[in-house]
Amino acid sequence: MIGERLRRVEDLPLLTGTGRFAADISLAGEAHMRVVRSPVPHGLLRGVGARTALAVPGVLGIWSAAEVNLGCIGFRMVAFPQLLPYRQPVLATGRIRYVGEPVAIVLAEDAYHAEDAAELVELDIESLPPVLDPLAEPTRFDDEHGTEALLHDGGYGDVEAAFAEARPAPGISNCPAAWSGWPGIPG
């Protein structure tokens, strides 16, 4: 009947531990990956030292952007061409922009040894002061671009008239929260 509570058809495997989630799949010869991440919010990446980490048994490879160009992560919702230089690289290239930014990946035969090796990867980062205030004066994003990527003024209808007629006139000031790689987490 309409409105009646339906019995979910997918629950039996989930309740008995026989569902298959992505991590439940195990293939012969599979490798495990661990990401080495930046401990600082802002800096210049001078080098990635993998010699010691590569000696860990079971390690298959350690790659940073110097070894493998994985490109940038595209935008999903907005696609202003002015924003293209600001896309986040899959692996940091030259500059570090937030705590936790992926700098290198470690591939190993099992997750434990991937984790061992990741802890031994040496990151040579020249730390720079982070920008924590979104309203602060713009600074350098990279050699060609400032941190003010785009001024976007959008709207529809007669905004001036709407505000003029509003009683009382509303006022709102909004500053977006940290997202998409804002270096707002102090190292």
Partner: peptide, 29 residues
Amino acid sequence: TVEGLAAEDGTLHPLQQAFWDNHGLQCGF
């Protein structure tokens, strides 16, 4: 473990049945 909760003949444990009856799960993770 969860694999050992139901009876050998497949009869669900009262908890498994109750979770199913009361929408006690969504993604199930």
